[in-house]
């Protein structure tokens, strides 16, 4: 089976129910966060180049332009973390109510995301 077919199966939404959407989003955010991990370490190379290089990087990235990306990234983190918690509980066979748990954690995550986005906004803009 080709990679293209596999991507359709993993990320396609047709024929999936709620637990399937959770899987799609988990895999997607996992890949995004791993790529970001590499980017994060690459950016921090500036730390070794002294104060000016680092401060220039911060000046450029902690700005309203990058705020939407930051908010999306923190959303991906919250989702992957909370859904991951559900997966750990389910994969250890600790609950039958993983679907109900998805709703509860989803609600908590949404509230957390809104609050944290406000904090990010406050740091960057105010």
């Amino acid at each position: 089976m080709s990679l293209k077919n596999a991507i359709g199966l993993w990320f396609g939404l047709r024929g999936k129910s709620f637990t399937g959407y959770a899987f799609v989003l988990h895999r997607l955010t996992g890949i995004v966060l791993t790529i970001y991990l590499f980017l994060h370490l690459a950016f921090l190379t500036s730390l070794t180049q002294g104060e000016e290089a680092y401060t220039a990087l911060i000046r450029k990235t902690v700005t309203p332009t990058f705020l939407p990306f930051d908010i999306l990234l923190v959303g991906a983190t919250i989702y992957h973390g909370l859904n991951g918690l559900r997966l750990v509980i389910a994969e250890f066979g600790l609950t039958r109510y993983h679907k109900e748990l998805l709703w509860v954690l989803g609600l908590i995550g949404l509230i957390l995301w809104i609050y944290v986005s406000y904090l990010l906004y406050k740091i960057v803009v105010v």
Partner: peptide, 30 residues
């Protein structure tokens, strides 16, 4: 993978709080 996931929940939250949410000065070089 499962255990590291649980630990990351705490570590990432702490990391984000320390660098982004606590104060604006947290990201300064010094």
């Amino acid at each position: 993978q499962m255990i590291s996931g649980i630990l990351l929940l705490i570590l990432v939250a702490g990391h984000l709080f320390a660098t982004h949410f606590a104060s604006k000065e947290a990201l300064e070089y010094s």
